[in-house]
Simulated scan of single mutants.
Amino acid sequence: MIELVLIGIGTGNPDHLTGEARRAMAQADLFLVPNKGAGKSDLADLRTQIIDTVRSDATVAMFDMPVRDDTMPYLARVDAWHDEIAVIWADTMAQHPSARRIALLVWGDPSLYDSTLRIAARLDPAPQIKVIAGITSIQALTAAHAIPLNTLNGPVTISTGRRLRDHGWPDGCETLVVMLDGACAFQDLEGAYDIWWGAYLGMEAQVLAAGRLPDIAEQIISKRAAARAAHGWIMDTYLLRKAQG
């Protein structure tokens, strides 16, 4: 049986690799690396650079990511996209029939706002799945700002920019971590909140900002736009907390 190993690699810094991740990479027969198209080639390059830090002799299979159909409703669009990716994975693996242990590097951790596990579940025949936990962008964010994730005995909600934009601040929420927010939904919040924002967390290009909304909102939007223009892509997240006093 083929073993598909999903390896959490943190936020792009090779130092984020755990010992377990390095051992799994050392044992892999094949690495699947997605190519997300023009403007995002750095993402594929980062993956191959991370592989090279562990395996100079690695066999790497690049595959092109399909484009989502924006005319479809969001959930149906993503579901169809996952189906397409699973077919591409299967076709790519079939081109390497001798590979029994296949690795795919996952930003952050495969369990947190990542669909690699959902795509892997579509493969037929089903491989044996192994997951190697990785450092999440949330951990990298709180470390970069030297803040605790939660208040004393306080709950934390993890959500997306889409949900914040469409539904506002969640009921009963004290601390909110927002991921996947290309539209900067925080700028539409009413009330007093503190924000800790970061992009390219843990990498040389790391950018941070923190302060009271709305005092710092425009600064974050400007920094985000400049960073995206410079790199062609951006990975960012932020933590919001109801302001005290």
Rank of each mutant, 00 (worst) to 15 (best):
M1A: 12
I2W: 05
L4V: 09
G8Y: 02
N13L: 11
D15P: 10
R22D: 12
Q27C: 13
A28D: 09
L32M: 03
L32R: 04
N35M: 11
G37L: 06
A44M: 11
L46G: 15
R47V: 13
I50R: 00
V54G: 09
R55K: 07
A58L: 00
T59L: 13
T59A: 10
F63Y: 15
V67L: 14
P73I: 01
Y74R: 12
R77D: 15
V78T: 13
A80C: 09
E84Y: 06
V87S: 06
V87N: 09
I88K: 03
I88A: 07
I88F: 03
D91P: 03
A94Q: 07
R101C: 15
I102S: 04
W107R: 00
L112N: 01
R122I: 02
R122D: 05
L123S: 07
A126H: 13
Q128V: 09
Q128W: 07
Q128Y: 10
Q128M: 12
I129A: 08
K130C: 15
I135R: 01
T136P: 00
I138W: 00
A144F: 03
I147M: 12
T151D: 14
L152N: 08
T157P: 08
T160C: 02
G161I: 08
H167Q: 12
G168I: 01
D171N: 07
G172D: 07
L176Q: 09
L176C: 13
L180D: 10
D181N: 02
Q187S: 14
D188G: 13
A192D: 03
A192K: 00
D194W: 02
I195M: 03
W196D: 14
Y200L: 10
Y200S: 11
L201Y: 03
L201R: 02
L201S: 03
R212A: 11
R212Q: 10
P214I: 01
E218P: 14
A229M: 13
A229T: 14
W233Y: 12
W233N: 15
I234Q: 05
M235S: 01
D236H: 12
L239R: 06
K242T: 02
A243Y: 00
